[in-house]
Amino acid sequence: MKYAYYPGCSLEAGSAAYDVSVRAVAKVLGFELEELDDWNCCGATEYFSQDELVATSVIARNLAICRPDQKELIAPCAACFLNLKKTDQLMAEHSEVRSKVNEALAAGGLHYDPGQVRVRHLLDLIYTDIGEAALREKIKQPLTGLRVAPYYGCQVVRPMNGFDNTEYPMKMDELFTWLGAEVVDYPVKAHCCGGHMTQISEGAAYELIRRLLDSAVEHEADLILCMCPMCQLNLDAYQALVSSYFQKNFQMPIIFFTQLLGVALGLDFETVKIGKEIVSAGPVIKAKLGAAPSQTGA
């Protein structure tokens, strides 16, 4: 199985742990991710606030530079996934968007017909294409005893993704049940992490982060699993600030789901970059899973 891979800017920098663990997991599970050559930033939410056509055109360049044999494009970042998928859909549903975007692309010698590339999220790939049986076969370190809170955030599940429920997604829950973890069923798993509000209105953003952390704590989660760099950054890097803002003492490790998946597949902490998070996940994983032979610690 071979897919085109769109890592996105965050995975090149602050969220390299996600990128590294994705690639490591891919190797073990036997699928190939071929990085899209010379991809550009998807613009996150920021271009849409300025000029919609520039936003869609910048995104569409990535779809247009896919080779004809690159029919499925995998994006691990929520914002990238949504932007790529949404642009494809806007171009399919609105002929005017389609012709204007192509007019802009033509200035760069490119063209894109909607539907040419199927944009998929990494979770969908692992859940659907790899599937339960193959995953179970590859488990080296069952996650028994570890209470994980899958956190989906917003843009992977809404407004549409075609593979999970928009209100109460379950695919990551199921995935980690297969891996033997105790999956925490907490009500805010698809609520907002605050997005870029951390940079605009800290009061508003910290409140959103607090709600998520509080709920995970209330449900006695050992750690939260993310699938979006923004979510991870907000919940992890801002956790101390949120703690002091609300006079709480959060100590909730936040890692990418692929990192823990890697652990279950027998990869050591260093390989999946456990230790890059601010609130360390290593100790709780070690404590709950016992002395796993392959774990060298971070």
Partner: peptide, 24 residues
């Protein structure tokens, strides 16, 4: 940050999109 190779292409697309304006 990393810089993409075909920066000129991206700039041309952005410039053109800005000229056309709007989306729908």
């Amino acid at each position: 940050p990393n810089r993409i190779r075909q920066m000129d292409q991206l700039r041309a697309i952005i410039k053109k999109a800005r000229e056309i304006g709007g989306a729908s």
